Structures are given as structure tokens and as C-alpha cells.
Computed example of a mutant assay.
Amino acid sequence: MKIGTQNQPFFPEDIKEKFRYLKNAGFEGFEIDGKLLVDHLDEVKEAIAETGLPVTTACGGYNGWIGDFIEERRLNGLEDIKEILTALQQAGGKGIVVPAAWGMFTYRLPPMVSPRSQAGDWKAVSESLVYLDSIAKETETTIFLEPLNRYQDHMINTLADARRYIEENTLRNVKIIADFYHMNIEEDNLSQALHQNRDLIGHIHVADNHRYQPGSGSIDFRKLFDQLKSDGYDGYLVFECRIRGNDPEAEYLKALKHLQQCLV
């Protein structure tokens, strides 16, 4: 397994300097914003060639969720994702992280009545995934379907939820991304959930139980990494977290060392 990261405010803004910084810090991959990749593809490819640091995946950078309530926005999002997947193919990236939606609706807060039926949710997300499955096949990439916790999305909350979409729609180029923060809220047993879905897990996001940097909370990363190892996972572990502490850069690099030690 290798450790990657999303962007942070204290990383250099210049793309090539950013890649050099990440390489020197000890990260082994970069999960890039999709729009940044599309808009600066040539510069990103040059940075990859210079540093040897790969773009692992894209996350974000498109307008419209795959389960959007507004059909025009859903379709616009799909076309944005198609463009990102094409750029990822050129940059050597594995694929793109997509949830059903983020912050669009939750049953846990008022009004608690969705403007669309559960059958409608299933239809919208399934149609999006079937389309993206075909685009991923063409671009030799993967769609990483991300379950979010119940307060951020109402459609896909557990790894089992994501698995159902993949299996019932016979998707060949869609895998599950397991996010430890969301799993900590939704799964009864994190290790068991990882094991039960080992055949479909293709990507990992790491944060501690409170969404801050790994090692600052209560998640037992060594236990989860050992589970992933025993199940044969050899992909990336990508930081997706906020940072708590007076010196964000120092705390972030400390968290990197913590995860490196947990992998030993």
C-alpha cells in the first residue's frame, strides 16, 4: 500500500512546486481536483514526468452530482466527469471518486422528507453509473463510488449500499472507495466491512474519527491496515482530512509518519 494526499492550503500553489513538495515530504501519490487536472493537464504531466510522483485519482472538480435532484445538473456533471476521466487517462491516473451527492439532502435534518422517492434515487444514480461505467471502460479508468455518512447524503451510506448498485447494475468499471471517517459513523465493524467487500474495494480515504488528521483521534489504523493487507489490498491510502493544531503543516507531516509506522 502507498500513501497519497489531496491538496492542502499550505502546499505550494505552483503545480510543479506542489509535486516536488509532496515527493520530498514522503507522499507517494496525489489525488487531484478534477478541474485543476483538466485546466492544467500539460503542466501536470510535466510535473509527473519530472518528479515521478503519480496522480492517483481525481476527486471533485465537476458540477452536478450523479444523483442530483435537478436533471440538467446531473447530466452536466456526467459530462464534466467524462472530461476528467479523459484527462486522467492521459495523466496515468486510476480513476475518479464520486459520491451519489454531497450536502444535497439528509433524512437526519429538517425537512426530513425527500423531494424524490427512493425509487427515483435508485433510477437516477443507476443511470449515471451505467453511463460512467461505459466511459470508464473507454478511458481505461475506474469510477470509485463513495458512501458518505447519513448527515451528508441520504442515498449511499455503507459499503454494502455501494455494493448493491455495482452488483444489481452489473457494473464492470465501478469499484468502492472506503472512507474511514464515513465508515466510522455508518459501519457496525470497520474491519468486518472491509473484509466483506474486499473484492470491490479499489481505493481508500483516510482521516481519523472526527475528520481531522490520522493519529489525532481514536481510529486504530494499524488494525485496519492489517485487515487490508490480509485481504490483498495493494492500492492507495489517500489523506482526506482537516487539520487540528497550531502548526498545520507540522501536524500533517506528523500524521504521515504515523500512518507510515502503522503500515510496518
Rank of each mutant, 00 (worst) to 15 (best):
V130Y: 01
E71G: 00
E127H: 08
D153Q: 14
S128I: 04
F144W: 05
T142P: 02
A160I: 04
I96G: 02
N149F: 12
R116M: 12
Y151S: 05
A101I: 01
S117D: 10
S114W: 03
D68G: 11
D121N: 09
R108H: 09
V130E: 15
H40I: 01
R163V: 04
Q152S: 09
N149A: 09
G120V: 02
A58W: 05
G103Y: 05
I156C: 07
A162Q: 05
F144A: 13
A49F: 03
R74M: 02
T142H: 07
P110A: 13
D39T: 03
E50A: 11
V130M: 14
Q118N: 06
P110D: 06
G60E: 10
W102K: 14
T142D: 00
C59F: 10
I70S: 12
M155D: 09
E168G: 06
Y107V: 04
D68T: 04
K94C: 03
P147Q: 05
A58L: 06
F180Q: 09
K94M: 12
G120F: 02
R150A: 13
P115M: 01
N63K: 14
R73A: 12
D80K: 08
K175Q: 15
P147H: 09
N63M: 15
N63R: 14
Q90L: 14
R108T: 13
D39V: 06
H154S: 14
D80I: 00
V174W: 02
E83W: 07
V55T: 02
I143C: 09
E140C: 10
I70W: 11
G64Y: 06
K45T: 02
E138Y: 10
K137C: 08
V44H: 08
F69H: 12
N173V: 00
E79M: 10
F105T: 04
G95E: 06
N157V: 04
D42Q: 15
V98W: 03
A136R: 04
Q118G: 01
K137T: 01
L75S: 07
F69S: 11
G93D: 09
W122S: 00
G93T: 07
H40L: 12
K137M: 03
V174I: 07
R73F: 06
N149E: 12
T106N: 13
T158E: 07
S134K: 14
K123Y: 04
G61N: 02
A91L: 00
T170W: 05
R108S: 14
G95Y: 09
G92A: 08
G93E: 07
P111M: 04
Y131F: 06
T86C: 12
L88D: 13
A119N: 12
G103E: 11
